[in-house]
Design a binder for these strands. Structure first.
Length: 218
DNA sequence: TTAGCACCGGAGCTTACGTT
DNA sequence: AACGTAAGCTCCGGTGCTAA
């Protein structure tokens, strides 16, 4: 149970060298060129962070190795890791983590899991949708889901165009964390109207000092 | 079909303030 | 003081999209 101090230190060292300024178009193209299969996603920042973690920690940490039910953890090195990104220039600092049951099982088996969270300033300036159109074009047109969305008359979300990394926060999650801030979400509606499983929620403001094991400023 | 990515915004509380 | 409503805030359920 737990992780060796040396391994943590190595992770910190590697993560210090991450790029700080992420341009949307460049990031998406980089994922595409490297055949990272999530490059078509609208929330490119979250996936790009995962892509960067895999690129930088490759050979040291393993990825998508452990799985509980249908939920796998992004990284594994003695214990499970999860990579998250979060905009700091927003009101809410509640961050959705993984499937609740899977997280509880991982904690039972390994003692805790670590979330590596990229905090940064997000630019939401795609008001005339030029970024979105560019993305749609390289994706090869509208997806089936989007055609349906238009039929339903639902709004399309505003895209993010840039991310400026300000801090990496390493957060240790155990049973106590779940009880304090991980109010268990229940029954999200899924794309087809069916129900989703509940997930763990992290409230950044409710974390204790000993849970944030490292803050790395950029 | 259900998981991943994470944000959004409305419901419904709480506080502030004007009127009787 | 008691009430009505506006304004501010918090919470958390719902949404958008793609992959396997």
């Amino acid at each position: 149970m737990g992780i060796k101090e040396d391994n943590l230190k190595k992770i910190f060292e590697i993560m210090k060298t991450l790029p700080v300024f992420w341009n949307g178009k460049k990031s998406i193209l980089e994922m595409k060129e490297n055949n990272f299969d999530q490059w078509k996603q609208m929330e490119w920042i979250g996936f790009y962070f995962e892509f960067l973690c895999e690129k930088y920690l490759k050979g040291f940490m393993e990825f998508h190795k452990i799985k509980y039910g249908n939920t796998s953890f992004d990284g594994f090195l003695e214990i499970p890791f999860d990579f998250k990104s979060h905009a700091i220039n927003t009101e809410s600092h509640r961050v959705i983590i993984n499937d609740t049951e899977a997280t509880i099982k991982a904690i039972e088996e390994y003692g805790f899991v670590i979330v590596i969270m990229a905090l940064g300033e997000v630019t939401y300036n795609d008001v005339n949708r030029t970024f979105q159109k560019w993305h749609e074009k390289i994706k090869g047109g509208k997806s089936k889901y989007e055609e349906e969305r238009i039929k339903r008359g639902a709004l399309s979300r505003l895209r993010k165009t840039e991310f400026n990394l300000k801090e990496l926060r390493f957060i240790k999650i155990n049973k106590g964390t779940l009880e304090r801030c991980g109010s268990f979400q229940k029954n999200f509606r899924n794309a087809d109207g069916s129900l989703r499983r509940s997930k763990v929620l992290l409230d950044l403001e409710k974390l204790k000092d000993e849970e944030v094991i490292k803050r790395m400023k950029f």
